[in-house]
Nucleic acid binder design. Sequence first.
DNA 1: CTTTCGCTTGCAACTCGGTTGCAAAATGTT
DNA 2: AACATTTTGCAACCGAGTTGCAAGCGAAAG
Lengths: 140, 140
Amino acid sequence: MDTNDCEILLKEHDIKPTANRNLVLKALDEAARPLSMLELEDEIETIDKSGIFRTLRLFVDHHLVHVIEDGSDAVRYELCHSSHDEIDDDQHAHFFCQVCHKTYCLGEISLPELAVPQGFTATSVNYLIKGVCPHCSKCD
Amino acid sequence: MDTNDCEILLKEHDIKPTANRNLVLKALDEAARPLSMLELEDEIETIDKSGIFRTLRLFVDHHLVHVIEDGSDAVRYELCHSSHDEIDDDQHAHFFCQVCHKTYCLGEISLPELAVPQGFTATSVNYLIKGVCPHCSKCD
DNA sequence: CTTTCGCTTGCAACTCGGTTGCAAAATGTT
DNA sequence: AACATTTTGCAACCGAGTTGCAAGCGAAAG
């Protein structure tokens, strides 16, 4: 994704493109996996922590990225692939490697529809598997 | 669960019973739902934050309670109902209410077995549903 | 072209859950 | 009783996230 693609995508989500926003978007796109704020911080040394934070919040508000919670006491952010501005329906499982602390997106696993008990209203579902990733299994 | 029951349960998990540990265990038992450290803190005003923390860590290490992560940037603890000292196989979904910020245990929903992709090794699964609980739905 | 207004940014300070060092208190052992 | 071990409370710390504020920047108005 070059700078021009970034700007187009940003505009599609009603976000005014800026240099920083292009950088964050590009970083998220190039990492094939969800990134934490910290990972973004040292991917893009030129932007302050608070800048990254505000950019991510903006992206989330505009349904450009969504938030996933692996158990790593650091929320991660991932580009939203569902059609823009719709409610985020990218429901898929994630895998957190307990060795390298990376989070993978298990797109191929579709989530079974679960019926919640009477009276509960579900708005989002989070399926997280923890374990060891292929790379860390090899070099144990 | 009276004090005596607590001590028996603690001993079954190779934990030396103390006054504080009985209190924490009783509080976890009486709350029918998973509690955060903060919730325990103001349930039991007599114990310091650090004491609760260390007690919980001890309980987790001895498979007496297990940890669940709702998305509420505060981990929650719940009594483990699987047979003692086994690997924690209390796999069940939880429900986090976005209004009252309480977490419910959806015991009745059984988790579908998911096959992880080639090369990944799964050690634990976390299924979290967010939405609005029956009580908060009523008083909206 | 310059002024003005509003958005964006970096810095520093702060919040809050969780964690640890340490000394005092409690408990257990000889 | 004297000593060793464990548990506890306090205060200080940590790290991710968050916010206030002033400076920077760019677009619109004069």
